[in-house]
């Protein structure tokens, strides 16, 4: 049994170690930040040292060539509406599936779960064909596609969570004569908040950062696609590409920092119960 004093001391040692590890951990990100404010020549000659001359030229170039405001807006549209739709359709479906005991609902549930292991490459070409047939090859068009693609994981996670939610409340509401929609949106949905937070976060990260589907369906104009302006096979401009990384990652990092508390709770809730 160790004395409280030594326990405290070992905590301080641990803290020091963890801070060191954390610094190494985010060093690559700091490295990019450091280089984004240097002129191109300095990056090539002294990539490690701190900037001697500060420049915002890289950010200006990244901002204009990426058409940053438009790209940000497009990405935000896709993410907001995409996630909202996934939440809506999946929570409704998962609740009904979890609350109906029948072979059909079980089969449907399995059908959803099955999709989680399908590699995107199998459906890639057919889905592009589908996007033209349904006139969905656009920023707005890709949104319903995400509803369908995001449904399996969301249904799976909601389903697991709903099973742990007591039925009494909704039964009481039903007896009071409330309609099913009222019961769902007023009684059940608020109870699902922890898992909803989890799914919002997972899907927001996914949609914001998605590359392949926008590349073949939307073609251009999202943050991930526009970043490639500076970093391709025949052209590699380190300064502007570092700046574009920072510009594109900043919104999602702010989103993360704002919702950090919910994220950790949400993922925890979703993971352990789901």
């Amino acid at each position: 049994m160790s004395a409280p004093g030594s326990h405290k001391r070992s905590l301080i040692v641990l803290e020091a170690i963890m801070i060191l590890v954390a610094l190494i951990w985010i060093y690559p990100a700091l490295f990019v930040l450091n280089n984004a404010v240097k002129p191109e020549a300095d990056i090539k000659l002294h990539p490690i040292s701190l900037p001697t001359t500060l420049t915002i030229a890289n950010f200006i170039k990244a901002w204009t060539e990426m058409r940053f405001p438009q790209a940000l807006l497009n990405t935000a549209i896709i993410t907001v509406f995409g996630v909202a739709g996934i939440i809506l359709v999946s929570s409704m479906a998962a609740w009904k599936l979890a609350r109906s005991f029948g072979r059909i609902s079980w089969v449907l549930y399995l059908l959803f779960a099955f999709a989680m292991v399908i590699p995107f490459q199998i459906i890639m070409v057919p889905i592009v064909g589908l996007s033209t047939d349904l006139k969905l090859a656009s920023v707005w068009g890709i949104i319903p596609m995400y509803w369908g693609l995001g449904a399996p994981l969301a249904v799976f996670m909601y389903h697991g969570f709903v099973k742990g939610v007591p039925r009494e409340l909704e039964e009481a509401a039903s007896i009071d004569g409330a309609g099913q929609f009222f019961v769902f949106f007023r009684v059940v949905f608020p109870l699902l908040r922890p898992i909803t937070a989890t799914i919002v976060i997972l899907d927001a990260l996914w949609l914001w950062n998605d590359f392949l589907l926008p590349l073949i369906v939307v073609k251009a104009g999202t943050l991930q696609l526009e970043q490639l302006h500076f970093y391709g096979m025949f052209l590699r401009e380190y300064g502007p590409s570092a700046a574009s990384l920072i510009l594109s990652a900043t919104p999602i990092v702010i989103f993360y920092l704002m919702l950090q508390k919910y994220i950790i709770k949400g993922i925890a809730a979703g993971a352990v119960k789901g």
């Binding site: 409704m92 998962a94 509803w147 369908g148």
Partner: peptide, 25 residues
């Protein structure tokens, strides 16, 4: 009611996931 709640997700999923998957096969 079952259909109203389940169908939107099921339809979207079938159109954008299952159908392309079958095409892929």
């Amino acid at each position: 009611l079952f259909a109203v709640f389940v169908l939107p997700a099921l339809l979207l999923y079938s159109i954008f996931f299952l159908y392309p998957f079958v095409q892929g096969i």
